[in-house]
Design a binder for these strands. Structure first.
Lengths: 238, 238
DNA sequence: CACCTGCCTTGACCCAGATCAACACGACGG
DNA sequence: CCGTCGTGTTGATCTGGGTCAAGGCAGGTG
């Protein structure tokens, strides 16, 4: 009856749902796939569903008239997409790798949220986590140097991938960058050239090692964190 | 029995509360005042209440070890302070003018939130609005020029003050900057010198006029918005 | 009154990161 | 096999905003 491997059960909306509620969610749920590079939804478009990322990576971006672009959300598996209670998308959402979404039609979803306290609760919690992440991100954008930005970004990705594997980040570890240099630049408020140069610099200084252009190995996670400018490396896994 | 002039009734938590619920809220509510410059709570401190700003202006900031500071929240009257369901402050909160808070003890508040769907709902809505604001802010920090940042900031303050007076921003209008140059710099990811210079430049170019150091008059709100780099000036009042 | 002290402004100079340009390296299609 | 297109790297140069330094201007305070 319900789908064990759908991450929505574990992290996103319905961690505590049971019986009827789960059945209801299962009923209103459907899947959508997008290819790498494909837009998911455009700023201002009507958005008749909310969703949880099952696999792949999606981004939320804002763009100024003249083309300057800032990423404002990076959605990895188990992250939530869409704003409950509002049917207009506020940002451009794009699939940066192949993406599978587990979608819920807005109408019944909103209604369920209204009726089921712990779903509303869960959503509030997730939104607060996102707000915290956004504020950390603001510190990065406003006050960190290019090198610190790159180090922070890699550390963030490392933490999230460690979280997926249910491990603590630390020591020697391997990870892959799910974004192009351009997307990284948009994440960090830099240009692609600066991103490229700083990655080269971190490589030269032995902070990171790379195989190909996307796979990174960290000889020492803590060393990277030192470069990121953050004081408390902390356990912030989200 | 309940307090008509407490903004918490109108915007923040309990817009739809009635009867018993209101009475409960009134019971757990108390006021606190802070003088300009005084810290309200420090990152990592235990925070045993949540609150709504009644009067004055408070800020949330993040600071790196070496002192670099980024503002991550600007709280004007009716804004909400504190994270429901977590008792550790994640940011430094400071009163930048004299501030009066309408506080609620965390324990009973959390419990009420759990029992009263529309309170949880309201909180979700407010948090989503804050998230939107944070993302707009990220675009500003990552991609706007110093001049655009200043213009955006003034436009944001203008909108919020217009909202307080229940008017649409537009045409000729007057407002006062509730922040020092330093706080503005921390808001915008700039230095005080750059803030000062760009304000001078906007004044020189006739975009803004100033009496004293804090009071601004806009000859033409739309002209300011043009300078801010935003396309859709939009009605985003929050 | 003179003297701070806190905020703000302005000028001179510098540098981190943007811009402009060239090139490297697959992957892909013909 | 050769173009070419998308992605990434590297170099040369430029510039917006940071840094350092010198005042200006209230508002307190003795």
């Amino acid at each position: 009856m319900h789908c064990e491997d759908c991450p929505i059960r574990y992290r996103a909306v319905c961690a505590q749902c049971e019986g009827d509620e789960l059945a209801t969610l299962e009923q209103m749920k459907f899947y959508r796939s997008y290819q790498a590079g494909q837009p998911i939804i455009w700023e201002g478009d009507r958005m008749d569903f909310v969703a949880s990322v099952v696999t792949g990576v999606a981004t939320l971006t804002h763009t100024l008239e003249d083309g300057r672009t800032q990423m404002v959300g990076l959605l990895l598996p188990s992250d939530f997409l869409g704003r409950p209670g509002r049917d207009q998308a506020a940002y451009n959402a794009t699939a940066t790798t192949d993406v599978v979404l587990c979608c819920f039609r807005r109408k019944p979803f909103d209604q369920m949220m209204r009726q089921t306290p712990h779903v509303a609760h869960r959503l509030l919690e997730m939104t607060l986590d996102e707000l915290d992440a956004a504020r950390e991100w603001m510190l990065l954008l406003g006050r960190k140097t290019a090198r610190e930005k790159i180090a922070s970004f890699i550390a963030i990705i490392a933490r999230r991938q460690a979280a997926l594997h249910k491990r603590r980040p630390g020591g020697r570890m391997q990870l892959d960058l799910p974004l192009t240099r351009e997307a990284m630049a948009d994440y960090l408020g830099l240009t692609i050239e600066t991103v490229s140069r700083q990655i080269t610099a971190l490589r030269r200084d032995g902070i990171i090692e790379m195989v190909g252009k996307r796979e990174v190995t960290l000889p020492d996670y803590d060393r990277l964190v030192e470069e990121s400018g953050d004081d408390s490396d902390g356990g912030t896994l989200s």
